[in-house]
């Protein structure tokens, strides 16, 4: 390519771009705030991620290819799962969730793999002869699952799904019914949450020592809220608590238990049933 350009013109062009940039700057900042308030462009990439995904991966993430890179790493994590390489999976899940912190699915499934699959695998790991150590290892995986869910909630505080998963994990894997009840109650407090979450909060509360009075009040309130909540488990627990708490006869519920539930909670996890 031949032809000469006047350097002065190039300099004036750069000055023109600086001037135009100065005029656009307040708009850019306002648009950035608008994006952040709509929960867009809010993922931050740190140097820890650079160490995990490598220089090329980090460059790709900085160049606007966070989502495809996350998908690629997710496939690698799936391959690691097929080979039951749990440690590698944790690293990959960390990278995926750092790249796409707004995708609930990644947090939820990462937690499920750790708390359910990895912990079960650790319990059956015959290369570890000590049962105590196997159990300790399983508990550590459950804690990792909880950590994924808690970090997911911090990144997505406006969605009930991860609270629901946290409730399920606390109930099924930690046997901490008070924590499960709190998590389900938090999930149920969202306006778009399904009705069964309020029941699960009350059910878990009824299994939690010292919270039976509170559980009874919750169950009673659900019973009074309408027919949609009157499922057999609710009646069964109400009757049990009436006896345990010695509720006066005239205040007890005397309805008959319906034959079949109108709707049941889905199987775990909340986003991806398996």
């Amino acid at each position: 390519m031949t032809g000469r350009v006047n350097p002065l013109r190039v300099l004036v062009t750069i000055l023109f771009l600086v001037l135009a940039g100065s005029l656009i700057l307040p708009w850019q900042i306002e648009l950035q705030h608008l994006d952040r308030s709509a929960r867009l462009r809010s993922a931050t990439l740190d140097l820890g991620l650079r160490e995990r995904v490598g220089q090329a991966g980090f460059l790709a993430a900085l160049s606007g290819f966070r989502a495809p890179l996350a998908a690629f790493l997710w496939i690698s994590a799936h391959a690691a799962w097929e080979r039951t390489e749990w440690g590698k999976m944790v690293t990959l899940f960390d990278s995926v969730t750092a790249l796409q912190p707004r995708v609930l699915l990644y947090w939820d499934i990462a937690a499920w793999h750790m708390a359910w699959n990895a912990s079960a695998s650790a319990l059956q790991d015959l290369t570890q002869p000590s049962e105590a150590l196997r159990e300790r290892s399983a508990r550590q995986y459950v804690a990792l699952g909880r950590d994924f869910l808690e970090r997911g909630i911090r990144n997505n505080p406006d969605d009930y799904h991860l609270y629901e998963s946290l409730g399920r994990l606390a109930a099924a894997k930690e046997l901490n019914h008070a924590a499960a009840s709190d998590a389900y109650a938090k999930a149920a407090s969202f306006t778009n949450a399904p009705a069964y979450l309020s029941r699960l909060a009350a059910f878990e509360s009824s299994e939690s020592p010292g919270r039976q009075r509170e559980a009874y009040q919750r169950l009673l309130s659900l019973y009074r809220s309408g027919k949609q909540q009157r499922v057999p488990t609710l009646f069964k627990l109400l009757h049990e608590l009436e006896l345990k708490l010695d509720i006066p006869e005239d205040q007890r519920i005397h309805d008959t238990i319906p034959e079949a539930p109108s709707n049941v909670p889905p199987a775990s996890p909340s986003i991806t049933p398996r």
């Binding site: 709509a38 929960r39 809010s42 993922a43 707004r102 995708v103």
Partner: peptide, 8 residues
Amino acid sequence: SDDIVAGK
């Protein structure tokens, strides 16, 4: 698009 595919 990264956030839009995440459901936002």
